[in-house]
């Protein structure tokens, strides 16, 4: 499904080079849930962005269904991100001037295979238990509700891969539990592939395989 081949990424800060991802090889199969744990600054988020085609590796390849992401032009890569990938961030990523419903529908403004995005968005709102909050603006929602709306947004175009970066960060235990249940449900229903960067042991335990990241290197951790 998604494969990393010898991925490397180095940042330069004030003339000094920092290698955050170093020669990573990873194969994630369709429908599989993979969790990546690691300390802050270990390169987890950068790895996720490399796999999601939002940052270009210095070396190596990212293959999605056999296609090398960085061999594509920007338009084609954007289409691919729009249709096949869904991102969930560790921060509040909703547009403050759009309602929950419009926030969920936002990716369809750039392309969609969904016939009626609004209907699908309403169905997703029902699934996350916020059907009555469709017309609410982010400031009228709690942190947990905002995170759930962001998750629904990631699913609007029925992506094949979800890349979640600390999806339960900053949330209370009850909300964490709701989100974990939501992931389980979606995974069971649609067979979506999940790559989750997390500190949360419970989320990590959801995964079919667990990886730990340290100093830019990735290592599988047995259960």
């Amino acid at each position: 499904m998604i494969e990393a081949r010898d991925l490397c990424k180095t940042y330069r800060v004030e003339g000094q080079a920092f290698t955050v991802v170093e020669g990573i090889n990873l194969v994630v199969r369709k429908g599989e849930t993979v969790s990546i744990v690691g300390h802050s600054g270990s390169g987890k988020t950068t790895l996720l962005s490399l796999l999601g085609g939002v940052t270009k590796p210095d070396f190596g390849q990212v293959m999605l269904e056999g296609i090398d992401l960085w061999s594509l032009g920007d338009d084609r890569l954007s289409e691919l991100r729009n249709r096949k990938l869904g991102f969930i961030y560790q921060f509040s990523s909703l547009i403050p001037t759009l309602t929950a419903l419009d926030n969920i529908c936002l990716p369809t403004a750039f392309g969609t295979a969904v016939d009626n995005p609004a209907d699908r968005a309403i169905a997703l709102l029902e699934k996350i238990g916020l059907a009555d909050k469709a017309g609410f603006y982010p400031c009228q929602l709690s942190g947990g509700q905002q995170r759930r709306v962001a998750i629904a947004r990631a699913f609007i175009n029925s992506p094949e891969v979800i890349l979640a970066d600390e999806p339960t960060g900053d949330l209370d235990e009850e909300t964490e539990r709701e989100i974990i249940d939501l992931f389980r449900e979606i995974n069971a229903e649609s067979g979506t592939t999940f790559l989750i960067v997390t500190h949360n042991k419970e989320i990590a335990s959801l995964a079919d395989r667990r990886f730990a990241m340290k100093n830019g290197a990735l290592k599988e951790v047995p259960f």
Binding site: G52, V54, D74, D75, S78, E79, R81, N82, R83, F87, Y89, S93, L106, P107, A109, F110, G111, R153, N157
Partner: peptide
Amino acid sequence: MLRAMGAK
């Protein structure tokens, strides 16, 4: 984020 969700 717009670019990540598919904006060209």
